[in-house]
């Protein structure tokens, strides 16, 4: 059978490539920011899939259910999860600043299409 990791690695790589294609070829600036968001999501899935083990449990000790060492043997890797926690919050910060820049661009030039603004030629 195909393993869960293989499916999710492939999905995350396809998401990153889709987002990259969208960021390269879309003229509307808001569409570019949406594509960057899709790249963020793909990378986060990739990072967490690295730490997945077959039939893994959440990395939280539960007091009532069995000995702690038995629980520890089946836990998924907590280190990529800690890193992705940071990455999600920072990704939101980047999106908010990018959208504010686009709002200011609209106020000055009345357009969000890249082809109509003089400085960006694409």
């Amino acid at each position: 059978m195909i393993s869960v990791s293989a499916v999710l690695y492939t999905t995350s790589i396809i998401l990153v490539l889709l987002g990259l294609y969208g960021a390269l070829t879309r003229k509307n600036l808001i569409r570019t920011v949406i594509s960057l968001d899709v790249i963020d999501l793909g990378v986060n899935i990739f990072l967490i899939t690295i730490g997945y083990i077959k039939d893994g449990r959440a990395p939280i000790y539960v007091i009532g259910s069995g000995s702690l060492s038995v629980q520890a043997a089946r836990m998924a890797d907590p280190l990529p999860q800690a890193l992705v926690l940071t990455a999600i919050v920072i990704g939101f910060g980047v999106t908010a600043v990018a959208l504010t820049l686009i709002m200011r661009l609209y106020e000055k030039r009345k357009t969000v299409e890249v082809s109509e603004t003089r400085g960006l030629k694409w």
């Binding site: 393993s3 869960v4 990791s5 293989a6 690695y9 492939t10 690295i50 730490g51 997945y52 083990i53 077959k54 990395p59 520890a72 836990m75 890797d77 907590p78 280190l79 990529p80």
Partner: peptide
Amino acid sequence: RDLWIDDPAQVRTIGQAAIG
């Protein structure tokens, strides 16, 4: 080369230490 592995024991060393 890692796509088919669901139990990558060799990449879990720091995670193992953190859980312990």
